[in-house]
Design a protein around this nucleic acid. Sequence first.
DNA 1: CATAGCACTATGTCTTGTCAAGCACTTGAC
DNA 2: GTCAAGTGCTTGACAAGACATAGTGCTATG
Lengths: 112, 112
Amino acid sequence: MNDEQQFCPVYQSINLLQEKWVLHIIRTLLEEPRGFNELSRAVGGCNPATLAQRLDRLEEMGLVKKTVHSVMPPRTTYQLTPAGRDLQGVIDAIDRWARQHLNIPVKAASPR
Amino acid sequence: MNDEQQFCPVYQSINLLQEKWVLHIIRTLLEEPRGFNELSRAVGGCNPATLAQRLDRLEEMGLVKKTVHSVMPPRTTYQLTPAGRDLQGVIDAIDRWARQHLNIPVKAASPR
DNA sequence: CATAGCACTATGTCTTGTCAAGCACTTGAC
DNA sequence: GTCAAGTGCTTGACAAGACATAGTGCTATG
């Protein structure tokens, strides 16, 4: 691990994006803002402990904004900030790649 | 976790790309093919066990090609397949985002 | 002939994510 | 009024994953 990498913004953001669930969270929030449990379900099985941790981190980094609408009954919304929304480009790139290279296993339509 | 996600290629590829070191490995190999130890150093401190595991996986998925030049003194080269090279778009998107949003908040240069 | 390189594998440890449960409270059904 | 189900989380084991480190078998260089 050399020093150059530690200060390379690309290296840093890869480190962020490779954290488990982060990309899924971003992708989900790109669709629309969501509450905690809703997000948890939409994201596909991330457990609340991890999700809370990720959301904290993303909020700290200024990618996600948390809004508390009411304390009691608890109601919260997580939405992307402009910086977070700019990750659309990354998701799009993944999307494009996925459709090209990961779609193949169609091969269904098994006849008899 | 609902069924749709399990068959969504985007979901699948996010799962792949979020594995630790995968994006770093891809990014490094996009520059040029490398040997094992060379790759390990260039990638920035991934330990050999993990690296070997990731490379196996990437090879299985057809993103990386492993070439053994000689067995005894061992010499190997890892390079991206066309499918792997297409991930350039993803790395580029991350690159663009990183330069826009991650360059600022360093705030280092702390004096004494 | 010692050292350093290559490509890895094996080991034990430590960090991370996961699971299940629970908290405090509201809402809606009965 | 009581019950189940929902909200947004937190906590405390536990398992899976990544870590550092050492070692293998061999060559090439000093």
